[in-house]
Write a protein that binds this DNA or RNA. Structure first.
Length: 283
DNA sequence: AGTTGGACCTGACTGC
DNA sequence: TGCAGTCAGGTCCAAC
C-alpha cells in the first residue's frame, strides 16, 4: 500500500507562497477578480460582491499571519485562509487552468494569482478594517512562532493551565499561530516530548526544549519550501515540490525505523488526527 | 474556560 | 469493473 501523505498547508507552506508571490505581485493592480465557487466567500452575499470589492485595487503588501495570507489592498485588506488544501499559484493568463481553481485574480501586466483548493475548506475574506489588530480572524491568533512574542514565559504559563495534550496546545491557533498536524509532530520529536503528554505536565527543561524546537523546525521547513506529499497536493507558487518531506522524522512514518535511534515510529489518534512519535527518543 | 464532537468537502482506498 | 462506504484533516460552532 502506498503511503498517502496528506497535505495541510501550515506556516512554512504559507510563508513559501508569500515569499514567492511577493516580488511578483506587490505594486500590481488587480484588474479583475473571478470567484467561481461561492463557498470560498461564504460569509458574503455573493461572489459578485467580493469581486466588486477587490476590482481595481492595488496590492500594497503581502504578509502572513499564522497560516493565513494577507494581501494589503488599499482600503480593503484581503485575507486568504488556505484551509486544508489551499494552494496559491502565479501564472500567465494563457496557462492552462488546473482542477479545483476557485478564484482567479488577474493583475495588470498579464499575470494571474490563482487560488486552488481541492477540499474547499479555504476562505477568502475582504475586510474594511485596515488595522490588523481589529480584524477578528487575525486578532484571535496567538503569537507568531518565529516572532519575539513567543517567549519562554508565555509558553510556560500557557501550557501550565492546559490539561489537554501538548500537541493539541501547539495546534491551537489561539495559543500559537501557524502550527498544524505535520509540524506539531516534528517539533515535539525535536523537543523529545511525547505528543500526548498533558501540556501542564511538562518540566521547565522540556518547555525550554520546545521553545527551541519550534523555530528550528519551522525555519528548516521554510528553507525546504514546505512539505509535499507523493500525491503532489502541495506545490509552491510555481508548481514546484517542496522538499521537507525528505526530512520528516516521524510524521506519516508509523512502523518505520526512527531516523535517530531505529525504534519503530508509533502512531496514535488525537481528535481524529494522526499522532506520530518515537517511543524511545521521546522518553 | 477548557475541551470535545459534529459538520463541512474531495479523493484515495477498501470491501463486496 | 463498479460502486457504496470509510477515512483524513483545519476550523468553526454548539454543547458538555
Amino acid at each position: 500500500m502506498a503511503e498517502l501523505l496528506l497535505q495541510m498547508p501550515e506556516l512554512p507552506e504559507a510563508e513559501t507562497f508569500r515569499s514567492e508571490l511577493e516580488p511578483l505581485v506587490v505594486g500590481k493592480r488587480i484588474e479583475r477578480a473571478e470567484i467561481t465557487l461561492p463557498r470560498m466567500v461564504r460569509r458574503y452575499s455573493s461572489p459578485g460582491r467580493v469581486e466588486e470589492l477587490i476590482r481595481g485595487r492595488r496590492i500594497g503588501s503581502l504578509k502572513r499571519r499564522g497560516k493565513a495570507l494577507v494581501f494589503g489592498l488599499d482600503g480593503h485588506p484581503m485575507i486568504i485562509h488556505l484551509g486544508m488544501s489551499g494552494n496559491l499559484f502565479i501564472n500567465d493568463a494563457s496557462d492552462p487552468l488546473p482542477k479545483h481553481v476557485h478564484a482567479v485574480f488577474s493583475l495588470e501586466g498579464g499575470k494571474q494569482i490563482r487560488f486552488q483548493d481541492q477540499r474547499q475548506f479555504g476562505e477568502i475574506i475582504v475586510e474594511p478594517e485596515t488595522d490588523w489588530s481589529r480584524i477578528p480572524d487575525l486578532a484571535k491568533y496567538g503569537p507568531e512562532p518565529l516572532g519575539k512574542d513567543l517567549t519562554l514565559d508565555y509558553l510556560r504559563k500557557g501550557l501550565a493551565r492546559r490539561a489537554a495534550p501538548v500537541k493539541a496546545a501547539l495546534m491551537d491557533q489561539g495559543f500559537v499561530a501557524g502550527i498544524g498536524n505535520i509540524y506539531s509532530d516534528e517539533i515535539l520529536f525535536a523537543a523529545e516530548i511525547r505528543p500526548l503528554r498533558p501540556a501542564s505536565s511538562l518540566s521547565g527543561r522540556e518547555v525550554e526544549r520546545l521553545l527551541q524546537a519550534i523555530p528550528k523546525v519551522l525555519r528548516r521547513a521554510i528553507e525546504c519550501r514546505g512539505t509535499s506529499g507523493n500525491d503532489e497536493s502541495y506545490v509552491d507558487a510555481f508548481g514546484a515540490l517542496g522538499a521537507f518531506q525528505h526530512e520528516l522524522m516521524v510524521y506519516q512514518r508509523a512502523g518505520q525505523p526512527c531516523r535517530a535511534c531505529g525504534a519503530p515510529i508509533e502512531r496514535a489518534v488525537l481528535q481524529k488526527r494522526g499522532v506520530h512519535f518515537c517511543p524511545k527518543c521521546q522518553e
